[in-house]
């Protein structure tokens, strides 16, 4: 299970991005995207902005849940009061570890059949355990709650970041402390 998180400004400009893996079920917190998938992730994430713009006026909640799906990539969105969007791309894994992302990449033209074959071989043993995990079902209430908590914590830190008198709207967030805080929230909830 790997995650790609990005904050998008009001001009659809990226302010912050971060990749991480799950820390639940013995995950090591490292992202398992292939090099190709990492570039694709940015496209998938940004293409969901159209849907965000539609939904934002029908739903006044900050957390807009899963908005978009592209093959095995799910996009969750959180919209701040001042129009910045937090987008989280998550790939639920059929098997453990890198199986899901490698399989997704090969489905999109990547040639990593040997990896996915080995992953699928080991997936049968632990698939029953994974079915209850956060990653297995992206639209289950548990997953949505976990992502909501993650977003809420990031929102708190984002608000602190923009409180800086030197921060102007739509500026890239470069503070390493902010990055640490996002990483900590990812470890805690996802």
């Amino acid at each position: 299970m790997s995650y790609y998180f990005a904050i998008i400004g009001t001009q659809d400009n990226p302010l912050f991005e971060y990749e991480f893996g799950t820390s639940k079920q013995g995950g090591d917190g490292q992202p398992r995207f292939t090099e190709q998938a990492r570039h694709l992730n940015q496209f998938i994430l940004h293409s969901s902005l159209d849907i965000v713009e539609e939904v934002q006026w029908t739903n006044g909640q900050l957390y807009l849940k899963v908005l978009d799906k592209f093959f095995n990539n799910y996009i969750s969105c959180f919209m701040t009061g001042s129009g910045a969007k937090f987008l989280l791309l998550h790939q639920p894994t059929a098997g453990p570890g890198s199986g899901g992302s490698a399989a997704a990449a090969s489905g999109l033209g990547g040639a990593s059949s040997s990896i996915s074959a080995s992953a699928s071989a080991s997936s049968s043993s632990s698939s029953s355990r994974n079915s209850t995990s956060i990653g297995a079902n992206p639209t289950s209430p548990q997953t949505e709650e976990a992502i909501k908590n993650f977003f809420a914590e990031v929102y708190e830190n984002y608000t602190k970041a923009i409180m800086s008198p030197f921060y102007k709207v739509n500026m890239e967030i470069r503070s390493p402390v902010f990055r640490q805080r996002v990483a900590a929230a990812g470890r805690k909830y996802l």
Binding site: E17, Y18, E19, S164, E172, R174, S175, P176, V177
Partner: peptide, 10 residues
């Protein structure tokens, strides 16, 4: 600001 620092991204 003191917290901003150079961007140590990724």
């Amino acid at each position: 600001p003191a917290i901003g620092g150079p961007g140590g991204g990724g």
